[in-house]
């Protein structure tokens, strides 16, 4: 066993890595690697690029380790060189300071480029739609400021249209993540943050909360349903005609800790989202509110956050 030790170690690491990437190449359950929109694709490209770049270092390291440990074992009769005092080599040092610097430089460049591009809408020619997302304990509220409808724990979007999600929280901070459409962004109380996503093809995409918010957190999944423009408009009309309205009292009830299924609302209180952001601290960041197209100058705050019974653990 002793003589095989190092080889096994190296082999194990390599195999694990290889298996990982083989496995990830296929299989629809690897949703991060099967993006359904331009944002997810851009991020996948960066994932691939960074993987290749780090492999440039990792593979030689593992190979060298295996080679060295095998060759320079302290065995009787080992004829390999032994230079106990040799401890400096300017050229070798230049190589292994230099190569990582080049790699980090390259990856840094593409990272910066991609970071800057992702704050822009993925498609400039199409008029985007906006969805305001509020994370609550433990559910997701979606409001459509243009369509004036609201949903809970699911949302529908038109395909091929950039969607501007504006995110906040009226509970501990969570994170809004729809892996197949693209990476996540936090929902933070008092802040309104923008996340651009877009679906290219119709489908139902898994969405989830990604930052721990307490007892009901594990149940905070939702579906993002992408459908063609006309089907989307049909859906909006249907919600408008057949769903109840969300009232202020209804919202305060929704806010109570608990989990629930999906729901749709034909309307919601005026400026609800703006008020949520404003009262949780958005008023101290008027620039941020205006950037997101919110009302940075809230008048009366009637009915908001007056009663927040924090202890109730009702699972509705």
């Amino acid at each position: 066993m002793r003589s095989r030790t190092p080889r096994r170690m190296g082999a194990m690491g390599l195999t694990a890595l290889a298996l990982l990437f083989l496995a990830t190449g296929c299989g629809p359950e690897y949703i991060v690697l099967n993006p359904a929109g331009p944002v997810g694709r851009e991020e996948l490209h960066l994932i691939e690029l960074s993987t290749i770049l780090v492999l440039i270092v990792i593979v030689p390291v593992l190979a060298l380790l295996a080679f060295i440990v095998i060759r320079y074992r302290d065995r009787p009769g080992n004829k390999a060189g032994y230079t106990p005092e040799w401890s400096e080599s300017k050229w070798l040092e230049v190589v292994w300071w230099g190569i990582p610097i080049v790699i980090v430089g390259l990856l840094g460049y593409y990272t910066g480029k991609s970071t800057f591009s992702l704050v822009q809408p993925p498609e400039k020619d199409v008029k985007p739609i906006t969805i305001q997302v509020t994370s609550l304990d433990w559910k997701w509220l979606f409001q459509y400021p243009d369509q004036k409808v609201a949903t809970v724990n699911y949302c529908e979007i038109p395909t091929g249209v950039p969607v501007q999600f504006v995110l906040t929280s009226d509970a501990p901070m969570n994170s809004f993540w729809v892996p197949q459409l693209g990476g996540q962004e936090y929902t933070m109380p008092g802040m309104a943050m923008r996340l651009w996503l877009q679906a290219d093809k119709p489908g139902s995409y898994f969405g989830t909360g990604a930052n721990f918010t307490g007892k009901g957190f594990a149940h905070m999944h939702f579906q993002v349903v992408a459908k063609s423009d006309s089907e989307f408009n049909q859906w909006v009309q249907q919600v408008k005609s057949s769903s109840p309205a969300l009232t202020m009292a209804g919202y305060n009830k929704l806010k109570q800790p608990g989990t629930m299924g999906t729901a749709s609302y034909s309307s919601y209180p005026k400026n609800l989202f703006d008020k949520i952001v404003w009262k949780n601290g958005g008023r101290y960041m008027p620039d941020m509110m205006m950037d997101q197209g919110l009302d940075a100058n809230m008048p009366g705050m009637s009915g908001m956050g007056s009663q927040t019974s924090k202890d109730s653990n009702t699972h509705s």
């Binding site: 690491g13 694990a16 890595l17 991060v32 997810g40 851009e42 991020e43 996948l44 960066l46 994932i47 960074s50 993987t51 770049l53 780090v54 492999l55 270092v57 990792i58 390291v61 593992l62 980090v104 990856l107 593409y110 990272t111 991609s114 970071t115 992702l118 994170s175 993540w177 892996p179 693209g182 990476g183 996540q184 962004e185 990604a210 930052n211």
Partner: peptide, 21 residues
């Protein structure tokens, strides 16, 4: 080395949007 490599992958901010948490 592998842990460090995945660390570099995580450091690429847009990729981190997918890895985070």
């Amino acid at each position: 080395a592998i842990g460090g490599a995945t660390g570099v992958m995580l450091a690429a901010a847009p990729a981190d949007y997918q890895y985070h948490n």
